[in-house]
Design a protein around this nucleic acid. Structure first.
Lengths: 165, 165
DNA sequence: ACGAATATGTTATACTATAACTATCTTTGG
DNA sequence: CCAAAGATAGTTATAGTATAACATATTCGT
C-alpha cells in the first residue's frame, strides 16, 4: 500500500529526500513562496533521516558545509519559513524538527516517536483527528492547530511484537 | 455533572487549589513520596490559575516569597518530582507546567489550550485515547506515554460559539 | 536602473534546563 | 540516642534553545 508507514520500515531513503525536496519546490512555486538555497539546504538536512533534528544540530552541519560561520537566527529563520509552509513539523517535547511527508494538504502534527532509536513516524488517522475534533467541540473549543506526540517503542525496537505476535 | 470541564467555566478556584493540594498530600502519603514544603509550594504556585506556568515564572514567585535567592535547580527538582508523581503535566509547546486535576489515576496528557486567554483544560476522552492507541498498535508501535496539545479558542474567547450557536 | 520588499548576516541577549558539588535534613538500624 | 545511609535542598557554573535589533545584500516589479 502506498500510504504505509515508512519511517519504521526499510526503505530507500534517498527517495524520501528527493520526494520531499521536489514537493517543497513545487508547493513553494505554486504559493509564490521562495524556497531559497539556504532554506532548501536546511530542509535537506532535516530530511537526512526520520529522526527529529535540533536547531543547533542543523546549525553545526550548516557551519561544517559553509565557509563562513553560521549564527542561530540563520537557522531559526529557515525553520520558521519551513514551518509556515508546513514543510516541517516541530516536536515540542524534543525541541526538534522533522520533515513532513505530505506537505501538500494541511494536517495536524501527529507523531509516533521511538524512545529507543529516535525515529519518528507521522500518523494520519481519521479516527484520531475526528475524535480530537469531537472532544474539542464538545468543550466549546475551536481548534486551530494540534500536536500529538506519542512516545514508546517502534516495531524494530519492541522486544516481542515482531516475532511473537 | 461532576466531571464537567472546569478551566473554561466560572468556578470557585480556591476549591481547585485545595482539592489539588489535598489529593497530592494523600497520594504522596500512600506512595511513601515526600511532598515537602518546597514541593507543595511549587504545586500551589502552579495551581494559582489554569494557565500553564513557566519554570522561571515559578522561580520569580518563589524568590519573591523567600528571603534567600532561589536558583533554577530548586525549581526544576520540584517540577521533576511533581511530574514523576503525575501531579502536574508539562506542556511541551509552551515550555510550561500545569496542575493535573486527576492525579489519582494515570493518564495521558491531553489538553485544550486557548491561544487568547492562555488557559488550559485537560480533556479525558476515551474515544481520543482509544483511537490513538489503535493507530499506534496498527503501526506496530508500543505506547509508553502521549501528549496531545490542541490549540485554538476556548468558549469564552470564541467570537461566535457562545451566543450564535 | 530604481525603489520596495524580502532575505540574510551579525551581534547581543533572553529564556529554558541540567551538571556537579556541597550542605542539610530524615530515616532507620544498631 | 547516635551514626550511617539516603534523600532533599543550596550553590555555582554552564549547556542548550530561541529571539531582538540592527546592518547588509538580494530579488522583484516597475
Amino acid at each position: 500500500m502506498d500510504t504505509a508507514p515508512l519511517a519504521f520500515s526499510r526503505h530507500n531513503h534517498s527517495h524520501c529526500v528527493s520526494d520531499a525536496l521536489d514537493a517543497a519546490t513545487t508547493l513553494c512555486t505554486e504559493r509564490g513562496a521562495r524556497l531559497t538555497p539556504l532554506r532548501k539546504q536546511v530542509l535537506e538536512l532535516i530530511w537526512q533521516s526520520h529522526k527529529p533534528l535540533g536547531a543547533y544540530a542543523i546549525l553545526d552541519q550548516l557551519a561544517a558545509q559553509a565557509t563562513k560561520p553560521v549564527a542561530p537566527p540563520t537557522v531559526y529563520r529557515a525553520l520558521d519559513f519551513l514551518l509556515e509552509q508546513k514543510l516541517i513539523h516541530r516536536i515540542g517535547a524534543l525541541n526538534a524538527y522533522i520533515g513532513c511527508p505530505h506537505p501538500d494538504h494541511h494536517h495536524a502534527s501527529h507523531f509516533l516517536l521511538c524512545d529507543d532509536c529516535g525515529r519518528a513516524e507521522e500518523i494520519h488517522s481519521k479516527s484520531v483527528s475526528r475524535s480530537i475534533q469531537k472532544a474539542a467541540s464538545e468543550a466549546g473549543f475551536t481548534v486551530q492547530s494540534q500536536s500529538l506526540e506519542v512516545f514508546g517503542l517502534c516495531p524494530d525496537c519492541s522486544p516481542q511484537d515482531k516475532h511473537d505476535a
